[in-house]
Design a protein around this nucleic acid. Structure first.
Length: 408
DNA sequence: TCGCGCGTAAACATTC
DNA sequence: AGAATGTTTACGCGCG
């Protein structure tokens, strides 16, 4: 697929699937623009905290970070999602000049879409409310968006499946334990690879090139908190949160985004990568850091918290013994789909309330996790504070006793 | 020229 | 049994 020039975000009215997806844009409007979230929220808090910089050892920074974490515990609304959806929906992207962003999808009614299958799949999945789709719905989305495929040879479906299987960006999620209705699994985008996909999308000549800024994940902040804790334990002055964050941020994306590591250190990394393993979007470089960085994934989509991914290398039995289940049963999402083929997307519109509820559940869950981390961090700090107080009182007691003894 | 990303085709296995 | 789905392999093409 070669690059195709031009694309306008507002092609809803022109494509069959437009109405369906238009509803989804509402969901995305729940979230702020990536930069807005990333920059505005945390930074605003940090600026407020400036006055506390002189009191490095007090717990103010914890409160500040609590505020930060609260901001990030709201689920997708607070997440710095950088998504092609912004590109496509376009509603929230003021930076699009129509001059550089015409309508390739419109064009693609008769010609091939400007996206690779990987990106098409990515977009399809990202458009889904739950950020995961069965193959069939991926087909549907692509067909709706790119009528080209309606007349194209059926081989493209094979290519889609081929991409899903081969591309490490995509992870399979078991639909449900029962699997009563429908075959196959749901496919999600591995959050670790989202930056890579975004990068790939940005490489499209018409892409929005929305900036990819470092996001502050709860885990990331937590790590800052813990680092400060350690410093406190060591008797060192912990850095004010603001400073600590800036320090970590100074490592740029490399700190948080494996993809960014590749982008910035591609040379060094590329040489250490087994090309065989490195399929799309430098998969192995990502995989290498996956275990370690899983907890610091910056783009915590709802899917991240709800599903565990099925490793592609492992052939998991249908019983899912080694496989993964959604903590929340996805049956409600896909099974008993009365709409058949067009099903998921349109159903998504109809089931918005259900989705919202499940979204709330997810957010609740993530909130709880974050709360637990916060509690843990706060607990440790309080513990330290307690120890300090005890030590202080012990020392003062000892001093007074010494003085008394001397007087005697 | 070579490596890489990508598209395509095909064979095969699994599941429903 | 047949269709849908998932996996794997192979090959060719374009690009840097």
């Amino acid at each position: 697929m070669g690059p195709v020039i031009g694309m306008t975000p507002d092609k809803r009215a022109e494509t069959p699937g437009a109405e369906k997806v238009a509803g989804l844009s509402q969901i995305y409007k729940m979230g702020s623009l990536p930069e807005a979230v990333d920059a505005a929220r945390p930074k605003a808090t940090l600026v407020d905290s400036e006055s506390a910089d002189d009191e490095l050892t007090n717990l103010n920074w914890l409160h500040e970070s609590t505020n930060l974490l609260t901001n990030f515990s709201l689920g997708n609304e607070g997440l710095p999602i950088v998504s092609p959806l912004y590109d496509i929906e376009g509603d929230d992207v003021p930076s699009f000049g129509s001059s550089c962003y015409q309508n390739p999808e419109k064009k693609s009614a008769t010609s091939k879409p400007p996206y690779s299958f990987s990106l098409l799949i990515y977009m399809a999945i990202e458009h889904s409310p739950n950020k995961c789709l069965p193959v069939k719905e991926i087909y549907s989305w692509i067909l709706n968006r790119f009528p080209y495929f309606a007349t194209a040879p059926t081989g493209w479906k094979n290519s889609v499946r081929h991409n899903l299987s081969l591309n490490k960006c995509f992870q399979k999620v078991e639909k449900s334990h029962g699997k009563v209705n429908g075959k196959g699994s749901l496919w999600c985008v591995d959050p670790e690879y989202k930056p890579n996909l975004m990068q790939a999308l940005k490489k499209q000549p018409f892409s929005s090139a929305s900036s990819q800024s470092v996001s502050l994940s709860p885990h990331y902040l937590s790590s800052v908190l813990k680092q400060n804790q350690v410093q406190t334990l060591k008797g060192e002055k912990p850095l004010p949160l603001k400073t600590a964050l800036q320090k970590k941020r100074s490592y740029g994306n490399a700190f948080n985004h494996p993809s960014a590591i590749r982008l910035q250190e591609s040379d060094s990394l590329a040489t250490s990568i087994d090309p065989k393993e490195d399929h799309n979007y430098s998969a192995s470089s990502m995989a290498a850091q996956r275990c370690a960085s899983r907890s610091s994934v910056s783009s915590l989509s709802s899917v991240d918290e709800v599903y565990e991914f099925i490793p592609k290398s492992s052939h998991v039995g249908s019983d899912g013994s080694e496989g993964f289940h959604s903590e929340e049963d996805t049956d409600g999402d896909y099974e008993d789909d009365p709409l058949g083929d067009s099903g998921y997307a349109s159903q998504a519109c109809a089931d918005t309330s259900e989705k919202r509820q499940s979204g709330k559940k997810m957010r609740k869950q993530s909130c709880q996790e974050i709360d637990e981390e916060l509690k843990e961090a706060a607990g440790s700090l309080l513990h330290l504070a307690g120890i300090r107080t005890c030590l202080g009182s012990l020392i003062s007691t000892a001093k007074t006793q010494n003085q008394k003894q001397r007087k005697k």
